[in-house]
Design a protein around this nucleic acid. Structure first.
Lengths: 148, 148
DNA sequence: TATTGTTATACTCTATAACTATA
DNA sequence: TATAGTTATAGAGTATAACAATA
């Protein structure tokens, strides 16, 4: 047993890091009655505006059928609507409803609180470094699509 | 909308980063016929030696019943065995078999190749920074147990 | 022919609770 | 009383393929 040797740990650390973050977000979102998965979609809609399910799917990293169910749920809760896509009649433009916009402000606050809690283990300079390196790492494979 | 503003992205980036890493590891492990979940346990057994299912569970971040099933699978494949725990008759000491030891060397190689591929987007100094910050972030909540 | 979205299905993971045997 | 492990079960998430409408 090599108690103090290095060993491959990148995958495990990412797994733990993601689990820790998912838990913190879920805790902050819980009073709002919304789950991480749907909140992530609302954040994308708020940031990039109305967009097709395919765009949402790529940005969020889900697959087609999962996105169908998620948008179904958002519609059922009155948080988003499928409107006709302006240029492609196959596609929908998913858009926030007023209720969705309102909830989004709460989600933004919850997300910032969660990030704040998660990052207290790093000082401000380290937080910026970590965020920058993580983003480059996460997006290293170029997105399979023409998205910003 | 706010195309170039910052928005809460830590959770999504961790999700994508983990997904990207899990895929790379799975690809490297595929020729060995072993999945990420079981390979992670074998790595722990190789690094820390025989240990109880509870210790494995905490280190890997799974729960009790999931660990039972994973150890069942490792035993069924002849890669690990449950032996009597030296000091606690309730517990098992899970240990690698010779076949498990042999597979482990392959897993170590596969894991290093996966890490190498994943980290090419960062230069060597950044790789060290990222690894160090990620480890602090991932382990920020103190482990619920007396583990190294 | 390829793409967007939908539906159905199955599989994996996770979470939970009840149970045993030991501590 | 609490802990290590087991079992069973239900739920969430994910992956897959077949299909319709449109490009």
């Amino acid at each position: 047993m090599n108690e103090h040797d290095e060993y491959p740990a990148l995958g495990m650390m990412l797994r733990r890091a993601h689990g820790r973050a998912a838990l913190a977000f879920a805790e902050e979102l819980e009073p709002l009655g919304i789950e991480n998965r749907l909140a992530g979609i609302l954040l994308q809609l708020g940031h990039y505006g109305p967009q097709s399910q395919r765009q949402l799917m790529v940005r969020v990293g889900a697959d087609k059928s999962a996105m169908v169910r998620s948008v179904d749920e958002l519609e059922a809760r009155g948080l988003a609507v499928r409107t006709p896509h302006p240029t492609d009649r196959r596609a929908h433009a998913v858009a926030l409803t007023p209720a969705g916009e309102e909830l989004l402000t709460g989600i933004l606050g919850a997300a910032q609180r969660a990030e704040g809690r998660l990052l207290t283990c790093l000082d401000p300079a380290e937080q910026r470094q970590f965020g920058a390196l993580l983003e480059r790492f996460a997006l290293a494979e170029t997105l399979p699509c023409d998205l910003p």
